[in-house]
Amino acid sequence: MRDPNDPGTRDILTGRVLIGYARVSTDAQDLSHQRDMLAAAGCSRIFAEKITGTRRDRPELARMLDHLRAGDVVIVTALDRLARSTRDLLEIAEQLQAKGAGLRSLGEPWADTTTPAGRMVLIVFGGIAEFERSLIVERTRRGREAAKRRGVKFGPPTRLSAAQLEHARELIERDGRSVSDIAALFGVHRATLYRALARAA
């Protein structure tokens, strides 16, 4: 948490506190170049980590988001250092907006939510991302419907034959064997056996 009595270094033009975030994907990569660029941009503090962007649990990113206060601006050297996809970028931008903080990319000057033009660009990106999601949902639905018409069965495959299910039922009702024992006998999980028996009832 930031000391409320330490406002940090402020941007000369805007008066905002600039906070840097740097990331590389592997331990073999070096953060020095990003750190130097962020320091030159006036960042009073830099959060940096060596972790792949595909990981959702990025500790330094979480610490940075917790550190932010209204009026701060997060600076990155490039958007792919911050987010792993358009959707991820929009989600992070929404978190920043909820805190009253801005976002600025040194590599993509248009990505600056402290300006009306930058905010408009992210709004457009949000619309495009939503459109892409709706197209994927529609294509998936049509694909499933076409597959069903061809006789494709969805859901987990039935791993037990009718004879096996009958034998299993006999073992339970006649011999008093437990479902767990019978599931182990047939090489399936007991939940699979429960479902198969329920469907066959």
Rank of each mutant, 00 (worst) to 15 (best):
A162M: 12
D175H: 03
R195E: 09
A146F: 00
L171C: 09
R159I: 15
R190K: 10
A168N: 10
S161H: 06
I172W: 09
E145L: 01
A198G: 00
T192W: 07
V152N: 02
I182R: 06
A146H: 01
L185P: 04
G155I: 08
R190C: 03
L160C: 09
L165C: 10
R169D: 15
R174Q: 09
V152A: 02
V179A: 07
E166G: 15
A147L: 02
L160S: 09
T158N: 08
A191L: 03
G151Q: 01
P157D: 04
K153G: 12
A198D: 02
R150A: 10
V152R: 02
S161C: 15
A162G: 11
L171A: 09
S180T: 13
L171S: 08
F154G: 02
E170R: 12
S178I: 05
R177E: 12
L171Q: 04
V179Y: 06
R159T: 10
A147G: 09
A184S: 07
I172P: 10
L197S: 11
S180H: 12
R169I: 07
A146G: 06
A198I: 14
G176Q: 00
F154K: 00
F154P: 01
H167N: 15
E173A: 13
A198Q: 06
R190T: 13
L185V: 13
G187A: 04
R149V: 10
A147S: 07
T192D: 04
R177T: 05
K153Q: 11
S178M: 05
A198H: 04
V152H: 15
D181R: 10
H189A: 05
G176K: 00
A198L: 04
L197R: 03
G151M: 00
E173S: 07
L193C: 01
A183V: 06
R195N: 03
G151S: 04
A163Q: 10
K153H: 12
E145P: 00
L171K: 06
E173C: 08
V188E: 14
A183Y: 14
A198E: 07
A168K: 07
L193I: 01
V152Y: 02
Q164G: 15
R149C: 08
L165Q: 13
P157T: 14
E173M: 03
P156N: 01
E166C: 15
H167A: 14
E170H: 12
V152I: 07
R177C: 05
G176F: 03
E170F: 11
D175G: 02
K153V: 06
K148L: 05
K148C: 06
G151W: 00
A191V: 03
R195L: 00
R174V: 06
G151K: 02
A168I: 08
G151H: 02
R174T: 10
L160V: 11
R159F: 14
A191C: 03
H189R: 06
S178G: 06
Y194V: 09
S161I: 13
A168L: 08
T192H: 02
A146L: 00
E166D: 15
V188H: 06
R149Q: 10
A196S: 11
L193Q: 01
